[in-house]
């Protein structure tokens, strides 16, 4: 990541919670040449439906067409392009840092605390932490801990809800 010219565009949409729907959505992205930067999906309160949040690096024209194409899918119930100013976006990161060195361990704990992260697991060699934040904050956090040594990591992808009375 990093070095991006445009901010990512994010769409949220509700789909039928059925086998094969994720395939069809990603197949549509592949076929039309849209590039997914991040994708998050999970059932909503009515478990017949799932909510997907997809971020892409695309210009307005491509983005509009992408929304139209998704909207056309029978399995897509509603869709909205999210306005970043009126949306809360979050992402969760699990990261395992190599902390053999006591200094490294101290640095790691400091960065994790600064980012209000949680330490989930710790032993002589590693610390595993959970960090949540805006996607940019996670990028920043990863920048900091890179020098400590990232053993492995996993990001959930951006998930988002609009503020106040706005909704999908």
């Amino acid at each position: 990541m990093g070095g991006r010219l445009m901010p990512l565009s994010t769409v949220a949409f509700l789909v039928e919670n059925q086998p094969g729907v994720l395939f069809k959505v990603s197949n549509l992205f592949r076929r039309r040449g849209f590039n997914i930067e991040s994708i998050a999906v999970g059932a909503v309160e009515d478990t017949r439906y799932a909510r997907m949040t997809i971020s892409v690096d695309a210009d307005t024209k491509t983005m509009n067409n992408m929304v139209d194409q998704l909207d056309k899918m029978v399995e897509v119930i509603k869709i909205k392009r999210l306005d970043p100013l009126r949306t809360i976006m979050r992402e969760l990161l699990l990261v395992k840092l190599s902390t053999n060195d006591p200094m490294a361990r101290e640095d790691a704990l400091r960065y994790i605390n600064n980012q209000h992260g949680l330490v989930l697991d710790i032993d002589e060699e590693n610390i595993m932490a959970e960090v949540t934040g805006e996607p940019g904050e996670l990028d920043q956090f990863l920048e900091y801990v890179k020098s400590i040594g990232i053993v492995e990591m996993s990001r959930t992808g951006i998930t988002a809800l609009e503020k106040g009375r706005l909704q999908l």
């Binding site: 024209k61 509009n64 067409n65 139209d68 194409q69 909207d71 056309k72």
Partner: peptide, 8 residues
């Protein structure tokens, strides 16, 4: 009839 054809 197909919104996704507009401006495509």
């Amino acid at each position: 009839i197909d919104q996704s054809e507009i401006d495509k």
